[in-house]
Design a protein around this nucleic acid. Sequence first.
DNA 1: TTAATAAAGGATAAATTTATCCGAATTAAA
DNA 2: TTTAATTCGGATAAATTTATCCTTTATTAA
Lengths: 144, 144
Amino acid sequence: MFSKACEYGIRAAVYITLQSLDGRRVSVNEIAEEIDSPMAFTAKILQQLTKNNIVDSVKGPTGGFEIEREAMDTVKLSKIVKAIDGDKIYVGCGLGLKECNADKPCPLHDKFIDVRSNLRTMLQSTSLYELATGLEVGLTYLKR
Amino acid sequence: MFSKACEYGIRAAVYITLQSLDGRRVSVNEIAEEIDSPMAFTAKILQQLTKNNIVDSVKGPTGGFEIEREAMDTVKLSKIVKAIDGDKIYVGCGLGLKECNADKPCPLHDKFIDVRSNLRTMLQSTSLYELATGLEVGLTYLKR
DNA sequence: TTAATAAAGGATAAATTTATCCGAATTAAA
DNA sequence: TTTAATTCGGATAAATTTATCCTTTATTAA
Ligand code: FES
Ligand code: FES
């Protein structure tokens, strides 16, 4: 569904959100350990999240990543997915035609756009804060 | 959503279905042209479809690929997707944890399984025949 | 001012997916 | 029986994604 990079990106963002709720700024090292992802690769992905103003980064000692309280609510998964995987999940054709186009649809078009709009709605309505709260109370996990 | 191989596989299967409705057996060459896919790669994918009894193949002159009338109804997209992409789309975790597991769910679990079951239902209820009929009357396309 | 810490960025490597090529096996028709 | 058409199967190559390494830059604290 999503690329590995995107999966790591979402997990990282949720972990940063959780820690920022406690006012803690976290390093790439800690993030990679806590979400069980390859550190250097995770660092690259965090750069993208930073460039897209999804998380904030601070260099130097005591530096690391954090996210503003307001962003926890306004940043939806759709923004992270778009920043990392682009919009192919939104504009792509389910059967691989150049782009999804209702004027010259592939045989799966009608059924596919239904599934896709379901996915899009989910991504556009799910905030980082929402995902972090389950973690906080120990109901959900970012690694096993 | 699906791999390139899977997209080609579905397009090929739908094209074979369409031609088999007219009693025509088709070659890899014709298929690749008609669905606009790389020929040799498409041949590999057709081998998989053949091994999985999704389409039938006949060697030699006048040979090619075809699909039985009954299979057009009984073969659903889910079977093709499973044959080519495996079942990761069904058992995988949306955030990349080892597997989807309701006992130790990732933060996205509840929302993800909803989207996924929507997708699964669509795949399990869509037959090759159904997809071929739109093509037949010129309402849908396998290439542009 | 210096040393240490952490993100940023560039280069490269490994793994996977996508794609091509070619010879072997099969089969129909000349 | 020979030839040609076609799928099958294995090897290999190209492209993309995933992952690592190392140097530079910024910043804090001693
Ligand atoms: S054209 Fe294929 S999904 Fe819309
Ligand atoms: S555990 Fe992640 S989707 Fe079910």
